[in-house]
Amino acid sequence: MMALGHAVGRRVLLPLVGVVIVLAIWQATVAIYRLPLIVLPPPWTVATTLADLVGTRAFWRDVGVSLYEFVAGYAIGTTLGVATGLAMGESRRFRQALTPVIESLRFIVPFAWIPLTILWFGTSYAGKIMLVAYAVYFVMTVSTARAIAHVDPTLTRVGTMLGMRPLRLALRVHLPAAMPTIASAARAAAAIGWIAVVAAEYIGASAGLGLMITNAASSLATGVVIAGMIVIGLIGAGVSAAILAIARAQPSAR
């Protein structure tokens, strides 16, 4: 009982103290230096701004647009990335042929593609979807290839002994065995993809959370900027949690 109380104190109370201290420093900074609202609004103002924002229709439209771009790009990038990675993991030749191309493209970070996607697709959704797919694709390809190559060889031998053909072996044995690694790569890729959407929306977009906060910044509505950052962080955390839940549900289903 004592131990339990102690654990609750450590896990809940102390972090709460940390949050309170940070908010107090924030509030004190605003009060002491008399910072105007456009530099740093106090925490309470940000909270009410966030509450007002959630009540508007435009906010939900921006959230919807950003999420749509992310989900579409993520689905495309993950599917293609896992497929390429699987092929690279299964065939040594294929891996050797593809590695230089993948490695050299991987160093062109997704953000550097933003201007090109604007030239190609304008401010439409397609450009962002391509960008997210690109960002996600390389993470998934590289991690899947590595995970497949590291699958326990015993499994392969057992599969071969049971008379499985290479394709069946790849899909029914190697892919499930590599799933934990692929799932954690999928979470890392989601974080990168989500932030790529936001960055792309800064530079050229007709709607979305990134556009919302850059617009707010240029009209010096700092409260909205911070509220938007909180929303972006929450959605990022939510997406990550959702992928974790899906990955956890997978093995129990089979």
Partner: peptide
């Protein structure tokens, strides 16, 4: 989890 990219507009204000 709030990537530094999300801080870009705020940092420009500051």
């Amino acid at each position: 989890p709030v990537s530094s990219i999300a801080w870009v507009p705020l940092s420009i204000v500051w």
